[in-house]
């Protein structure tokens, strides 16, 4: 058990626990970013460079920013109300108990399993070229499906997040569009 692994694992675990337990939502998002960065470092330690940098790009670069935007757009950066938390005190305790049970079962099975004597094989040369070749040969069908899924998710996210009264908004936009040339003209006259 190396020291580097212990440090990275500790940072990841503390970040995750803080992200799930802090009151302020923006602090939660920042701690979540720390946990994601720790996970990326763990991937890099395991020799999966491409996955590690994809984790940094996708999670720290995109998902964390999306979460911060959602927090700001829903204007819920004030802390959760005490009444809402107090009402479900017993259910919260039960949930934490269930999570602890899951963790203990998983760690007991990991520690008592037959993986103790497994050692790492020699790391093969996994260049990005090799990953690209695999994506274009053996995994080309999943790649196409993922492309379709991402397109559908992009369009779906825009459609879902669009305002409900799109007709009224459209009218307002056309009105603004009609008005804007005259305003521009007035500004030109002022100049």
């Amino acid at each position: 058990m190396e020291t580097g692994f212990l440090i990275i694992a500790g940072i990841t675990a503390v970040g995750a626990i803080a992200a799930m337990s802090l009151r302020n939502l923006v602090h939660c998002a920042l701690c979540l970013t720390v946990a994601f960065a720790g996970l990326a470092a763990l991937y890099l330690r395991l020799g999966a460079q491409f996955v590690g940098f994809a984790q940094i790009l996708v999670y720290i670069g995109a998902v964390a920013i999306l979460i911060v935007f959602a927090i700001l757009l829903t204007r819920s950066n004030e802390t959760e109300s005490e009444a809402g938390r107090g009402r479900g005190k017993w259910s919260s305790l039960a949930s934490v108990g269930v999570a602890f049970l899951v963790f203990s079962v998983l760690s007991i099975s990991v520690l008592s399993g037959s993986m103790a004597n497994r050692t790492a094989q020699d790391l093969p040369d996994i260049s990005v070229k090799e990953i690209g070749l695999q994506l274009m040969t053996g995994y080309v069908l999943p790649l196409e499906v993922i492309a379709l899924l991402l397109t559908a998710a992009l369009i779906g996210a825009v459609l879902i997040a669009m305002p409900e009264k799109s007709a009224a908004n459209g009218d307002a936009q056309t009105r603004v569009a009609h008005r804007s040339p005259t305003e521009a003209g007035e500004k030109l006259n002022d100049l």
Binding site: M1, E2, F5, L6, A9, T12, A13, A16, I17, A19, M20, S21, A35, L39, L42, L46, E80, G84, R85, G88, S91, S92, S95, V96, V98, A99, F100, V102, F103, L106, S107, V110, L111, M115, A116, N117, R118, T119, A120
Partner: peptide
């Protein structure tokens, strides 16, 4: 071993995520 260390970190992350998803409102 090291593999067990990674698996336990992963189990801890799963448990923390599960607890958060169940308790937070």
């Amino acid at each position: 071993t090291t593999l067990q260390g990674y698996l336990i970190v992963s189990a801890l992350l799963f448990a923390v995520g599960l607890a958060g998803a169940l308790t937070r409102r």
